[in-house]
Amino acid sequence: MAALRKTFRINKKDFIHAGEASISVKNLLKSLHVDTKLIRCVSVCGYEGEMNVVMHGGEGILSVEIDREKVILEISDDGPGIENIDLAMQEGFSTATEEQREMGFGAGMGLPNMKRNSDHMTVESEKEKGTQIRMSFSMADEKGE
């Protein structure tokens, strides 16, 4: 299978369509008969990354690349960036607003869950420039859950 790449837009503050990019990725992986466990890991990471763009980021893009060995998920946005990445990666750290917390967001588990459910994850961010997250998932081994 040659590498297949698809790209989806994530719109800033768009809670109405939030989650749709991840659902599209899930359906794509399903149609390619990717292992169910791997799909679940990619779904967790896609959803958390997508929600972060909508809640904390700016205009964003989610792209997925699939080949025989792996799935690569890249989520980037041009928002305010993450000031302290090490702190943001800690379980429970969140800058979510009171209103977002009432909706069940802001548990500070998004980035840690992305780390846990991917085989490799890199986070790059610059203040006022934006954030890029890249995660890879190996078709071979089992992860997360």
């Binding site: 659902i23 779904s43 959803y47 909706m103 069940g104």
Partner: peptide, 13 residues
């Protein structure tokens, strides 16, 4: 939670 974002979670899970 009754807001619309719960449905993405339901679908993805």
């Amino acid at each position: 939670q009754g807001h619309q974002n719960i449905m993405a979670v339901a679908v993805l899970r």
